[in-house]
């Protein structure tokens, strides 16, 4: 039997990695999207662990909803990226800096 804290460590580490991935990544917006996905998956992991630990289904139901919402969210994100690409022919993070003040 693996202690529950190990699972929680794993999910927190994944969460931190994804957060670092968003803030340290200076190249491509698509990589940011992937990091976001990782972040939500680490949270899902958290929910499943807690749900299992408590013997409660709510956690798993929550995971379903999170999955659908992030699917919708990444669909919108991809659509925004397509619009961005059409306007400036690049999706590099460095090129985004027209709004300043």
């Amino acid at each position: 039997m693996i202690p529950m804290s190990y699972y929680l460590f794993l999910s927190s580490i994944l969460f931190s990695i994804s957060l670092a991935g968003i803030f340290l990544n200076r190249k491509n917006i698509l990589i940011m999207l992937m990091s976001l996905e990782l972040m939500f998956l680490s949270i899902n992991f958290n929910f499943i662990i807690f749900g299992n630990y408590l013997g409660d289904l709510t956690g798993q139901i929550f995971v379903f909803f999170i999955l659908t919402v992030i699917a919708a969210e990444s669909a919108i994100g991809l659509a925004i990226i397509v619009v961005l690409y059409r306007n400036r022919h690049s999706i590099n993070v460095d090129d985004i800096g027209n709004l300043k003040g």
């Binding site: 379903f64 999955l67 659908t68 699917a71 919708a72 990444s74 669909a75 991809l78 659509a79």
Partner: peptide
């Protein structure tokens, strides 16, 4: 994009 949306209804 369209696939993602309609794909996940299966999850429900």
């Amino acid at each position: 994009i369209l696939f993602i949306i309609f794909d996940l209804e299966i999850a429900f």
